[in-house]
């Protein structure tokens, strides 16, 4: 199972990921341990499968950590293909998502989605914010109208939804 590259220097990202899986295993295990056991009528209680899952994740977490410590599993060639990460792109997308999740109850679906759309487009290196805002608004409005008005799927209240 271990790669021949076991003499390589530790791959920190992969090691951390392995430790992260161990962390999840710990959360699953501890939360299960804290929960009250099942009542008597259930022959196999509500904690049996969670304990099994925690154990499996713990074993897998140890294996992943070891693998990371011994140089990781990533192929350096594919790693190179990824190129330089565009932090700017990530920042715009993250901003769009954060704004959307945080402000949708106040702005309403249409405006909030418009902002999300424009931010994501910007993150993908679009340099025409006016067009993006317009397209985003149109898309959000059509979607909202079709679903909220014609199908009466509740997309919540908002700043401008009341006018339509």
């Amino acid at each position: 199972m271990l790669p021949p590259s076991s003499h390589r220097a530790p791959a920190w990202a992969e090691t951390l990921l392995g430790l992260g899986v161990l962390g999840v295993a710990a959360v699953v295990g501890i939360d299960t341990w804290r929960a009250p056991g099942g009542p008597g009528y259930s022959q196999v209680g509500p904690t049996a499968f969670p304990y099994g899952t925690a154990a499996a994740l713990a074993v897998l977490g140890v294996l992943l950590t070891l693998e990371g410590w011994r140089g990781g599993w990533r192929d350096p060639d594919t790693e190179a293909e990824l190129g330089h990460p565009s932090w700017r792109g990530l920042a715009w997308v993250a901003l769009g998502l954060a704004v959307n999740a945080a402000l949708i109850p106040w702005l309403g679906f249409i405006l909030s989605s418009t902002v999300l759309f424009a931010c994501v487009a910007r993150g993908f290196a679009s340099d025409r914010p006016a067009r993006d805002l317009a397209v985003g608004f149109l898309l959000a409005f059509v979607a909202w109208f079709g679903f909220a008005r014609l199908l009466s799927i509740n997309l919540g209240p908002g700043l401008i939804e009341g006018y339509f």
Partner: peptide, 17 residues
């Protein structure tokens, strides 16, 4: 840029709806 903006808007409708 527009395609991925649109994908995220659609993902939002379903979840928020």
């Amino acid at each position: 840029p527009l395609l991925y903006g649109g994908i995220l808007v659609f993902a939002t409708i379903g979840t928020y709806g």
